[in-house]
Design a protein around this nucleic acid. Structure first.
Lengths: 337, 337
DNA sequence: GTGAAAGCGCTAACAG
DNA sequence: CTGTTAGCGCTTTCAC
């Protein structure tokens, strides 16, 4: 073979030459096959097959200003919280020919800015944010990018653009109300100290004042990441301060499992002596003994909804409901009676 | 303002005009600041600030054929197995100014091909694959793309290009040897039926024949995703077939926790009557009671190593060790004595 | 140290 | 239904 076909990837021109048509016809055969005659289509397709041509979407995106790339930023992928959302997001995007670019902000504001810069430079058609954008410069950059933005996992009071999530404070209220309904009065919290957990705790405490007439709710704060061990430690610390607590809410099921484990070790009967509730409905929550009462949020729905919002806007359709509350459900199991 | 600066993003030209230099000088100020005089640099930087210019990396990548985009494909992100790898990968790439594009192959061969097509079209500088590429066409496409490829989580016998992972069969042997050392003879498996789990099971059985002189090891296969409930069911099924088993290996810690739970419910003492081992060293494994003996794999190291392999090759450096075995460790805890 | 011209691979716009 | 021309925004030459 005279020409080394290996050195550089095939382009529209190569395909066009082989098929005996012009470059634009190849482009059309790919992007709007019905505007091309059946015969030509067949010849182009064969040429594509032969050359192993894969269209350079960078070039196409540059010209058409449609990159079919959607960016998502999460604080961290490790930690099972955002998984369902990411999975559903990826799947929904994929179904429509879009691709996901993933970034981790890592709970640090410092890198947030550099990350946004790197992402915006790739001209995604939209962005999905989980966790707030903290810096003012960051918000300005995003606004300036002029692309659809969906904030998730939190119903921001003033979203940059669109939002799909739920009300963390109301979850706190609901859990407290559940404890109240179970006849618990000496409630306590073992909670992570990220922003969303804080808001859930805030809702819980507000309800505690109203329903349980308790001004003070003992809280043991744990640093990220929330682990089972932190849950065990949390219960131990709480009991040291308040031996008579009768209900504990953990900020994740992992924490709740830790509380359960520690209670078991100390011979504290759950739910008789201590009611325990978690958050997230992680895979093990329903299966352990006692099964963990928890709060379930439809993470997959959040991801799917976010994907469709971005795609709709990217393709020029209006998004009728730019703020979606997916709600939550309290799943009552054995650990709280 | 006469010209609407909002409608379309600022380009090099806008910045150049404002700074009173040519476009190429702006480019140089950004990509090789030391080739530009200090005064010019300052003026360009101010102009960038003022215009809110964010370089279009698509255009740059098109021209320079360097996209600074790395693609990763995992079967699924939900399921905590690949998380550490993805996290470390994202972080390591980010540190070097690279971005991650994430795809899910979803264990289905059908979509694998379309996914590869969509990815290659974006001309990433490299790809990280988790789980094998099954179709022949897929392998050809990858080879044809001519970019560095790292296969992870498995030491493929004949990697497409590079590989970083561990030997699943040897893990199976190690677990079986551990059971043997604990004096267990009537061993059994509760295993997922994906390819990697199969290989671990294969190694286990080979060792069982040698060490325990058992030709047959009872196995309960469970469909993906592996859940705690499946683990409970698994032990129940195994006991129905073989009431006298004294050791069970679950293909994930979640499955092992299910086995533990079911054992507890039936009054089977662990580890006295039944030794239980898991896989993955998930977050809860060390904290539950009894703590779960498990196999730990350094997922983060896999991700970091893969990232560096890709970056090295992308930047023209040689990768001295294109196949890296990160090994594994058996973490012995209370659930097996 | 700086600039002008050319072109990466593709598709929008306008013919025919 | 198909082709020609131009240009997306940047960076690689090659000049000065």
């Amino acid at each position: 073979m005279a020409k080394s076909r290996k050195r550089t990837a095939a382009t529209v021109k190569d395909v066009a030459k082989l098929a005996g048509v012009s470059a634009i016809t190849v482009s059309r055969a790919l992007n709007s096959p019905d505007t091309v005659s059946a015969g030509t289509l067949k010849r182009v397709r064969r040429a594509i097959e032969r050359t192993g041509y894969v269209p350079n979407l960078l070039a196409g995106g540059l010209r058409s200003a449609r990159s079919k790339l959607v960016a998502a930023v999460v604080p961290t992928v490790a930690g099972p919280v955002f998984l369902d959302t990411i999975q559903a997001l990826t799947d929904a995007l994929d179904e429509h020919g879009y691709q996901l670019m993933l970034g981790q902000s890592g709970y640090r504001t410092s890198r947030e800015d550099a990350l946004l810069h790197a992402i915006i430079g790739r001209r995604p058609v939209g962005m999905v944010l989980t966790g707030m954008v903290h810096s003012e410069q960051g918000r300005r950059r995003l606004l300036g990018a002029g692309i659809p933005i969906v904030e998730t996992w939190d119903l921001a009071p003033e979203p940059i653009d669109m939002a799909v999530g739920f009300d963390h404070e109301r979850i706190g209220e609901a859990v407290c109300a559940h404890f109240h309904a179970c006849g618990r009065r000496r409630v306590a919290l073992v909670s992570g100290d990220d922003e969303r957990a804080h808001r859930r705790a805030k809702g819980f405490m507000r309800a505690a004042r109203k329903l349980l007439l308790r001004a003070q709710v003992p809280v043991h704060w744990i640093p990220a990441p929330a682990t089972l061990a932190a849950g065990r430690e949390g219960l131990a610390q709480l009991l040291a301060r308040e031996p008579r607590i009768d209900a504990v809410w953990g900020s994740s099921d992992l924490v709740a499992l830790g509380v359960l484990t520690e209670a078991h070790q100390r011979g504290i009967a759950v739910p008789r002596d201590l009611a325990v509730v978690g958050f997230g409905d992680l895979q093990f929550a329903a299966g352990v003994v006692p099964a963990i009462t928890t709060v379930r949020v439809d993470g997959a729905r959040i991801g799917r909804t976010a994907a469709h919002m971005i795609i709709d806007r990217a393709e020029g359709r209006d998004v009728t409901a730019p703020i979606v509350d997916v709600g939550f459900s309290l799943v009552v199991r054995q650990s709280s009676a």
